[in-house]
């Protein structure tokens, strides 16, 4: 009985992605199809080989660490989602505060001032100096 290690799950997901790609192949006209087809086949073969190979032992990072990373990743995802909803300034400001709070930074002057300085300095650098308009919110927008 082969164990479903983390690596094997990773490979299964890759195989799913490859499968999704292969469903698109029929639409692609001749001349644009051959090259990706070859890549798809080789990728599939290597996935299978890696799957049946004896697995290396995997290092574990402990539940507590995994949870911390997971929550931080979710925080990041939320902030990216919010970028187009409440705009760059508010999304970034709240992400930086939330992140620092969650990672238990000591609550001194740095904790309160740093997020504002980071957010606003990036904002002014981009919008004023580099004339790149950072995401604005659809729900609510703050522009300076």
């Amino acid at each position: 009985m082969k164990k479903l290690t983390g690596n094997r799950v990773f490979l299964l997901v890759s195989a799913l992605v490859l499968f999704a790609f292969s469903t698109q192949l029929s639409k692609i006209p001749q001349g644009a199809k051959e090259y990706p087809l070859v890549l798809l086949i080789v990728s599939f073969i290597t996935v299978v080989l890696l799957f049946i190979k004896p697995q290396q032992p995997e290092e574990t990072i402990g539940k507590e660490n995994a949870l911390r990373i997971f929550i931080f990743a979710i925080l990041t995802a939320i902030s990216i989602f919010l970028l187009t909803k409440i705009g760059y300034i508010l999304a970034t400001l709240s992400f930086v505060y939330a992140g620092l709070w969650y990672l238990k930074l000591k609550k001194n002057l740095v904790f309160y001032l740093f997020p504002i300085i980071l957010t606003l300095s990036m904002y002014f650098l981009f919008t004023r100096v580099l004339s790149v308009i950072l995401p604005m919110g659809t729900w609510f927008s703050l522009t300076l």
Binding site: S79, T92, F95, G99, L100, L118, M122, F126, L134
Partner: peptide, 16 residues
Amino acid sequence: QILAVIIVVLASVGSF
């Protein structure tokens, strides 16, 4: 902690 947050912000704004 600060470094982690800075990098995430830079990476998002940079790729945007």
